[in-house]
């Protein structure tokens, strides 16, 4: 059998007295579209931040394609083939949409040390292609900070794709969108991931979004992995229904 793309073994993270992650074990195979769900404060972002090198784990190992990447700094991890987006949209607000993607391509390729060639001549075509792929072809000249929230999320996706990653970590890719935008946007990610053969791990609050695309689901609750499996299995799990799905139903009722 092929090597799993991502293996997480016994990952723990503590903030002072708070155990935000406790002995999390997880394995993601190539081509999966894995959702990590759990109520607010369950530790989803902490999980992402710890395995992407932003936070230092207190214990545990992370393996990417079989290689140990525990404790690698973000830039090294990223060059190795892991891209991520942030729960709070994060683009280069002062630069144009095109420049955002150009600087990403330059970064992934280690070309930001070039001190002489004009940058605007670099990778323009590739950047345009990527922007077209996420549906931003019409906005290349806009200043990124002036884009709508949804378009900034798309731009972030293009930035993440610019390095030809093999693993994509998306922390709430649909946060702050309307219900319709959310589905549209996750279907876009799903389609692109299929086309490029990417493995995706994402967190999401909206169950409609999760069940629309996820191939596997992991449920986090108070820093522990509560359940894992196909959408059907997770949906049928009584423990999950009790601690999470019930709550989510209430939550989505409150939101609307």
């Amino acid at each position: 059998m092929a090597e799993p793309v991502l293996q997480v073994r016994g990952l723990s993270k503590q903030f002072g007295g708070l155990l935000a992650l406790c002995d999390v074990n997880l394995q993601v195979e190539r081509g999966e579209f894995r959702a990590i769900i759990g109520p607010n404060g369950a530790g989803k972002s902490t999980f992402f931040n710890t395995l992407s090198g932003w936070l230092k784990a207190n214990a545990g190992r992370v393996l990417f394609e079989g290689r140990d990447i525990t404790g690698h700094p973000p830039h090294r991890l990223t060059r190795g083939g892991i891209a991520r987006t942030f729960q709070i949209t994060s683009v280069f607000a002062g630069m144009s949409v095109l420049e955002n993607v150009q600087v990403a391509i330059l970064g992934y390729r280690g070309q930001t040390w070039r001190p002489w060639t004009p940058a605007r001549t670099q990778h323009g075509e590739l950047a345009r292609e990527l922007l077209e792929r996420v549906g931003l072809a019409g906005e290349v000249g806009r200043q990124a900070g002036t884009l709508s929230h949804g378009d900034q999320k798309r731009l972030e996706l293009a930035i993440a794709l610019a390095g030809n990653p093999r693993l994509l970590l998306l922390d709430e890719p649909t946060a702050g969108m309307t219900a319709r935008e959310r589905l549209e946007s996750i279907h876009l990610v799903h389609r692109i991931a299929g086309e490029l053969g990417l493995t995706v791990v994402f967190t999401e609050h909206d169950m409609a979004v999760v069940f629309a695309v996820a191939s596997h689901i992991s449920v986090l609750h108070q820093g522990r992995l509560l359940a894992e499996g196909t959408p059907e299995a997770v949906r049928a799990n009584p423990e999950v229904q009790q601690v999470y799905l019930g709550e989510a139903v209430i939550e989505s009722e409150q939101r609307t």
Partner: peptide, 16 residues
Amino acid sequence: QALKGNPARLQYVGVD
């Protein structure tokens, strides 16, 4: 320029 605005994001496009 990217670093000035958003150093966190820049690390995640592979820049030290």
